[in-house]
Amino acid sequence: MADIGSSVDILMVEDNANDEALTLHELHKYHLTNRIQVVRDGQEALEYIFCTGRYATRDIKEQPHVILLDIKLPFVDGLEILRRIKQDQRTRTIPVVMLTSSREERDLIESYRLGVNSYIVKPVDFDQFKESARTLGMYWLLLNKPPKAA
């Protein structure tokens, strides 16, 4: 985990330690894990993104290049976090990728309605999972040119 306050490439909001470990394992393989911040629930995610509470000392201008967001989270769910990010002028340009177990169409539709940048269903098949993690990292960190944060 990166130090508080320092710039990170990826913010990963994931309450499942297994999924976290698997994702990190794959990202690590492609040397993408050096600047990754993991938070375990919705509330912490909001505090991190909006620099409040535990992360009050963080600079809001220093935002990750991409946020990986699970939908089912303790305290505040992923869709709510997405809504807050996309409503706020300071954070709306951060690319958000839903990385979730949910295959429900309504979650997918709601996510896109709220302005998600990508929606990826976590596959059970590990080979597929690896592929997802790899392309995800490559695309959002290496290929995608984010707009300058406001």
Binding site: L22, S101, V124, F126, K130
Partner: peptide, 20 residues
């Protein structure tokens, strides 16, 4: 919805870690 989300997570761990 619960099944879709919760049942698949441990399965992912099982096949994922064995794959590793």
């Amino acid at each position: 919805y619960t099944i879709s989300h919760d049942l698949r997570a441990p399965l992912r761990a099982v096949s994922g870690f064995t794959a590793i």
